[in-house]
């Protein structure tokens, strides 16, 4: 098949971008998969045997991996559910017209604009056992008798980190929801009112179905972000105390950059990437059918 002038021009124009993509995206993806098939430990430079899928099998046989899977699942569920629910509530509030609505909308974006590292440090200080704001507040209002060591309590560590993540992620989710809500035709609400629908019925039968595109976007985005969260764990707990906040991302970091096992680190990264892709696909497929 001979290409016409237009096709050739298009191919020529696209070629540089394609070349860059091959170098910065495709090559690392293929190369890291190749690395995951080798037993590469940086501190043992004289050996690098090809082990096929042994790294993957070893990972599935490792108790730490399953602990990390369990912690990641809990963390992701808490983050996604709480962020989505809060985002819908905030969007409903800000979709109304009331004095100060614009100011509140602008303030809402502050957490989202805060850099992740700053966010982590801020919450670490809030939870601090000696000078933390949370302790000070709870003691002053009489809900706590003495200062508590929040992040050292393995029962709530994950939830405290999730709280910090939700605080930062919720504004963007709310923004997406507001945009979706603004697109709902006012006629639908008027018709519902004529049919005698109350506020709750209008929300369930008009707002919620119309929110699905935004909801799908939020769910996919939040799932992808939460499942791979790393910065908060690095700053706040370093995977601890014990293994209380040992998530997959943290385990990959430890395996790759502390134990310097690049082979298993790359294999874990692949498992995480495939899981993220599969979950996103499932959400899109499940909700997409209903849009």
């Amino acid at each position: 098949m001979r290409l016409g002038y237009d096709e050739r021009s298009a191919a020529l124009l696209v070629a540089p971008v394609l070349g860059v993509l091959l170098v910065v995206a495709a090559f690392p993806i293929v190369y890291s998969f190749w690395v995951s098939l080798h037993d590469i430990v940086l501190t043992r430079p004289l050996r690098r045997p090809f082990v096929g899928f042994d790294n993957y099998l070893r990972i599935f046989d490792d108790a730490r991996f399953w602990t990390a899977v369990s912690r990641t699942t809990v963390y992701t569920l808490v983050c996604v559910v709480a962020t989505t629910l809060l985002a819908v509530l905030v969007a409903l509030l800000l979709n109304e017209v009331f004095p100060g609505q614009r100011l509140l909308s602008a303030l809402l974006l502050v957490p989202w604009a805060t850099p992740s590292v700053v966010n982590g440090l801020m919450w670490k200080w809030i939870y601090d056992p000696t000078y933390g704001l949370l302790n000070g507040l709870l003691v002053q209002v009489g809900l706590l008798e003495r200062y508590r060591v929040w992040l050292s309590d393995p029962d709530i560590t994950l939830l405290l980190i999730a709280n910090a993540a939700i605080w930062k992620q919720m504004p963007l989710a709310a923004l997406l929801m507001i945009v979706t809500m603004k697109a709902i035709p006012e006629d639908l609400y008027r018709a519902a009112r004529v049919d005698g629908a109350n506020v709750w019925q209008r929300f369930v039968h008009v707002t919620l179905p119309a929110l699905r595109p935004g909801l799908m976007l939020v769910l996919v985005y939040e799932t992808m972000i939460s499942i791979r969260h790393f910065d908060l764990f690095l700053i706040m707990t370093q995977g601890g105390p014990g293994d209380a906040s040992l998530t997959l991302s943290w385990l990959i970091y430890v395996e790759t950059f502390r134990s310097l096992r690049f082979g298993t680190g790359a294999a874990m990264s692949y498992i995480l990437a495939i899981t993220t892709f599969a979950l996103s696909w499932a959400v899109i497929r499940f909700l997409g059918k209903r849009i």
């Binding site: 393995p154 105390p241 014990g242 293994d243 209380a244 430890v254 502390r258 134990s259």
Partner: peptide, 14 residues
């Protein structure tokens, strides 16, 4: 890495 985690788990009473 494993040792650190083991000592912390003991300290947490876990």
């Amino acid at each position: 890495e494993t040792s650190n985690q083991a000592w912390q788990t003991v300290c947490l009473g876990r």
